[in-house]
């Protein structure tokens, strides 16, 4: 079975992760821009980070047979540094139109502060202007309120729910997000957020329409194999192939297709690994024999 991890921060992951993901059937990943744990203090850091999302990381992924796409945006935490946030807002249009940019994101609330709201709104408007989907990060604390507020603001500014993924849902938020017509993302973390067993229960109760499973694997304790592992558990629990396919592949593809920047052809045709694009000395392979499929 093929999988898309629709939200994963590969810049923080190792080549072992890429190898493992490819061998488990992950054909494509979407890497939303986010914070790096250490807050950035100048615009150059954002410029180089965005450049690496559209440049080096995409190339690195391709060496393991995985197609890499990204979302560009100012994350919620760093929206609180207003001076820098204004500069980032000027930078985003330089990246939003590039090849393989499938969304604006991840954006939204963390502390539910005024400045978070200000830049969230500005970026929703940018997404409308560029006709791009949006990945909305919902807060870890105040989850339910933050999720509802994020959707209310989308509605106030005329965003079509079909263009928006409300991410990091749980049992408390899923019903309202689905009822309001949004794509409903679930992040599977080994210890916090959703666990695999809870996820299976949600699919049993709500079905697979507009539900998207992702790993959000990053620099913290997280599992880049969360999507294939959950798919495997769903299969064991008797969930249909169709529902597994929709939650672990098709729904993510459907929403990002709206950007015009992703296509199944990308991996069906070009997914043959050609590590001879690399060289043996000081790149990703470092002396390993290249794999050419």
């Amino acid at each position: 079975m093929k999988y898309i991890d629709s939200h994963v921060h590969m810049s923080s992951r190792t080549t072992d992760d890429y190898e493992a993901m490819a061998s488990e059937g992950v054909v494509a990943v979407v890497e939303p821009a986010f914070w790096l744990g250490q807050p950035r203090t100048n615009i150059g850091s954002f410029l180089d980070y965005f450049s690496s999302l559209v440049g080096w990381e995409r190339f690195r992924a391709s060496q393991f047979g995985i197609q890499h796409y990204c979302a560009i945006g100012l994350d919620s935490k760093e929206s609180n540094n207003e001076k820098l946030a204004d500069e980032v807002m000027e930078l985003i249009p330089r990246f939003a139109c590039k090849e393989g940019v499938v969304a604006i994101g991840e954006i939204g609330f963390d502390d539910m502060s005024q400045s978070e709201e200000k830049y969230y709104i500005q970026q929703l408007l940018l997404a409308k202007e560029y006709e791009l989907p949006v990945i909305v990060h919902t807060p870890h604390r105040n989850k339910k309120q933050g999720t509802i507020r994020s959707m209310d603001i989308c509605a106030d500014y005329g965003l079509d729910p079909k263009m928006v993924i409300i991410d990091h849902n749980n049992e408390e938020t899923v019903k309202e997000v689905l009822d309001r017509g949004y794509w409903t993302g679930f992040t599977l973390y080994p210890k916090t957020k959703m666990g695999n067993e809870r996820m299976v229960a949600i699919v049993e109760e709500y079905g697979s329409e507009r539900i998207i499973i992702n790993s959000s694997a990053d620099w913290g304790v997280s599992d880049p194999l969360a999507v294939p592992k959950t798919a495997s558990l769903m299969k064991k629990r008797g969930i249909s192939e169709k529902q597994i396919h929709e939650t672990c592949y098709q729904n993510a593809l459907d929403i990002y297709l709206k950007s015009g920047q992703i296509s199944e052809n990308d991996w069906n045709k070009a997914n043959k690994r050609d590590q001879s694009q690399l060289f043996s000395g000081n790149s990703v392979l470092r002396g390993q024999e290249p794999i050419i499929q």
Binding site: L47, F50, S51, V54, G55, W56, R58, F59, L91, R94, F95, K98, E99, G100
Partner: peptide, 12 residues
């Protein structure tokens, strides 16, 4: 300089 600084792979 600016085009190079924010170039994606194919733009580079």
């Amino acid at each position: 300089d600016k085009l190079f600084a924010s170039a994606d792979m194919n733009e580079s």
